[in-house]
Design a protein around this nucleic acid. Structure first.
Lengths: 218, 218, 218, 218
DNA sequence: CATGAATGAGCGTTCATTCAT
DNA sequence: AATGAATGAACGCTCATTCAT
């Protein structure tokens, strides 16, 4: 669909240059449209950003639900949470990056409603860590700090992961699950213990970015 | 000095709104100057950004040197590296944040020269991890991934640390040293083993941001 | 007919917001059409305006003819002219308002041809006043100024008359006939002397505007 | 002053083409400025309009005060009110025209505050008519209608009066005072009875419009 | 040291209109 | 009869920067 093409072009440019530094004429040019035509497919520049962040956060929450539903064991939950988060970020690095960095570019109404989604995710992660700590399964000195460290570590994946990279996504996911276990002081887990694989969804707003154009992402 | 006031105002606004979304009139207004006058103190908007990033990266490299010089033991080096990095980020969260996020706003010449500094830091961190791994002191499956995880985790500090926060800086530093040890699979260290305290420098470009104005940083 | 619906929507919006401030998409939306479809029913935006002004001025001239034909007495003619003009404006306030104010929005060709109609009306009014003055029936110091005063007074009716108002149209008409007589220094007339009632026509372009939506007309 | 030049250019174009149909680049070109420079002298397009309407309505109210203060006799008050209003409109026809027609182009905040001024004027006129009627000095069948007729008649002056016209302003003023007396059924007054001459002020926003450029005002 | 004035370029957005379907 | 798609032009406005004073 054309409107997805527009979305993908927007994400590509937002990720490369930042939201504020990207013009809608630039986005339009990328998909071969006049800038006016772009308004048939979108609700304007902020509308594009909202669409991206919305679908990215929706998917994050959806996969979070699925991750937590599988087991009541905090360590399994933590592992599945990280695997899902990393999978989403690795499969959709540009959308994830934009979602992470562009809150401040939103108008206050949109910012508020999207922050609700992000906060919901973060507090679910926090709850899992707290539960593991209380149950004596985790060895954490400061659960809040641990949560922040894990979060930044996982969010960071979008900053460097490239599809054409050295490691397949599955390996990166499992490495990060291991990082998570280490950070909470829990024993290592193998893939079998995590339960059924969660396949991350490719978002309709995620552009295909040829590897060489991504050099300058940061 | 007046030019430092300007620098601090710029950092404050860049951190809050992003470089592209901040106008130089806005910066000038913050320090009670006409926007034209500002050009007596600076080299323009990008000049301000370069000055901030330069001094932040310089200080990061300086403290890195100091950290590595103290001991040849990879674990001590890693701990001191993290302690310095976290200290710098916590004491100068706004400058650190700007430095981390604004590479893409630089012209290509400035970007290239500043990336050299950042890459130098990152490769020194990488070298320490590799050394620890080769020496059998660390238990790392993929040194490169480990380096990235540690980096993002430390960089992330600038996104949430507040001076008026729950934990004193020293506690946060030691927590992150512990996170680093866990990630590389090394035993925990206490403060004594790290050697003489490294006092992070307060950058001349770091603004004092009243805690309540920082709520909306992300 | 659908094309009349379009016309009425246009008049409503032109009267409320002005011609230049009204978009054709807005007009189309009002009648539930796509803006492109609207071009099947009209000759574009200016075409709509021309149609409105044309029919309003045509009707003004038609009722003028009828008014003058009935009697040769300048006072009766003046009274019938005013009664007709006020009746037309009161029954079609929105169309009249648009017709009065939108000459400047016309292209030069259309403006010229429609100004001919308006000038024709105004000079017929002027002729009646001149005739009454010459015949000693009127007491006017400056016929031209008197004509202008009467004209503006009558045109003004469209600015404030509302169907749901305090006074019925007939009463307003007779009041203004009286105003006219006073301005030319002629004795008052009662409705009988004016001859057969002239029933103003409801223009096909006159929209029905619910009284509460008309509060903000000026 | 340059900002007055800008104001005058704006009034000229607003009067000729209407507010909505006038671009700020057009205004800027008229005074030989870049459209951006215009923002050093003004608060933008609506700011220009507000300045014009404000000063016009202020002056109307100021002269109204002066007119009413001189005498308690309703007929003298009415005469002085009309003389002042017509004088203001004749000396500043373009500003008056814009002020009369552009309420609907204002944002709601500005519209509300300026409507207060206009309503204040209109109700003072209404009060004078009511007083004359109650005192038996006037012979009015419907004071409200009479007020509207006088208002439209006076406002209309700005639509046709030209400085280079046939009649000097003073003559037009006295003619309209006479019209007013006739409309309220009061005896004619000569200039002496009206009390000291009120000299209307030339507004700083009133442009000098060469007579030939004003042909197309309506 | 400081500023008001100035500008070309560009911003996000809307415009009236056309045309293939 | 109706519309989605498309566009060049223009909208009001802000930008970083320069320069004479």
């Amino acid at each position: 669909m054309k409107s997805d093409e527009v979305l993908r072009a927007a994400v590509l440019l937002f990720a490369r240059q930042g939201y504020a530094a990207t013009g809608i004429r630039e986005i339009a040019r990328e998909v071969g449209l006049n800038s006016a035509t772009l308004y048939h497919y979108t609700n304007g520049k902020e509308g594009l950003l909202v669409a991206v962040m919305q679908s990215c956060l929706d998917e994050l929450l959806r996969s979070t639900d699925e991750a937590l539903r599988h087991s009541g064991d905090p360590q399994v939950q933590l592992g599945r949470l990280i695997r899902a988060h990393v999978g989403l970020s690795a499969l959709n690095p540009l959308s994830s990056r934009v979602t992470d960095q562009a809150f401040r570019s939103l108008g206050s109404a949109n910012r508020a409603s999207l922050l609700v989604l992000r906060d919901s995710y973060e507090s679910q992660l926090g709850a899992v860590i707290d539960a593991g700590a209380r149950a004596g399964l985790f060895d954490v000195a400061d659960p809040r700090l641990t949560r922040l460290a894990i979060l930044e570590m996982c969010n960071g994946v979008a900053n460097w992961y490239r599809h054409a990279g050295r490691l397949p996504m599955r390996a990166v996911q499992m490495q990060f699950v291991d990082f998570g276990c280490r950070l909470v002081g829990a024993p290592a887990m193998d893939e079998a213990e995590l339960g059924p694989v969660q396949t991350p969804h490719l978002l309709r707003c995620e552009p295909y970015a040829p590897p060489d154009t991504m050099e300058d992402l940061s």
